[in-house]
């Protein structure tokens, strides 16, 4: 409880795909949590300022790409005097393991947080093995 909550500066990245970017925005790597429960793997990514309609989740073979396009809010008549975070797009690429059931991945975006629920394939679920007394 006594520990002060801190964060680190956003990490800028070079977009994963080769070639020129057609948008003049900075691209950040979203802070991401990945955890695994008994029957699914959950990916949670922070993309503040990105509306649900501007989130793009792409799965190509085993490569999962998440992308969020940011629309700058106009602050007409105001000037920025102190800045601790930058505004820009988000992008991050993950490689999925074989045990994810790719047809049942669910994505939701709320309050600037993208959540991906990826169910494990039947064959990959953990099973409890009962031990018989001999």
């Amino acid at each position: 409880m006594a520990q002060e909550m801190t964060t680190t500066a956003k990490r800028e990245v070079v977009p994963a795909e080769q070639g020129e970017v057609t948008r003049a925005a900075v691209v950040y790597r979203p802070d991401t949590d990945i955890y695994e429960t008994e029957d699914q793997v959950v990916v949670v990514a922070d993309m503040p300022g990105v509306a649900p309609a501007d989130v793009d989740v792409n799965l190509e073979r085993r490569v999962l790409t998440i992308r969020g396009n940011f629309h700058r809010q106009a602050h007409d008549g105001y000037r920025l005097v102190h800045a601790e975070y930058g505004e820009g797009d988000y992008e991050r690429v993950f490689t999925l393991s074989e045990e994810i059931d790719r047809d049942r991945i669910e994505a939701s975006h709320k309050n600037g947080v993208l959540t991906l629920k990826m169910p494990k394939a039947e064959s990959a679920k953990t099973r409890k093995i009962t031990v018989k007394a001999a």
């Binding site: 964060t7 990490r11 008549g77 000037r79 102190h82």
Partner: peptide, 20 residues
């Protein structure tokens, strides 16, 4: 550039804008 060891900063990060 400090990309390697980003310094801890206060939470939440804020931007400040001033108008008239």
């Amino acid at each position: 550039n400090a990309g390697v060891f980003p310094a801890a900063q206060a939470y939440p990060p804020v931007n400040l804008w001033i108008g008239d």
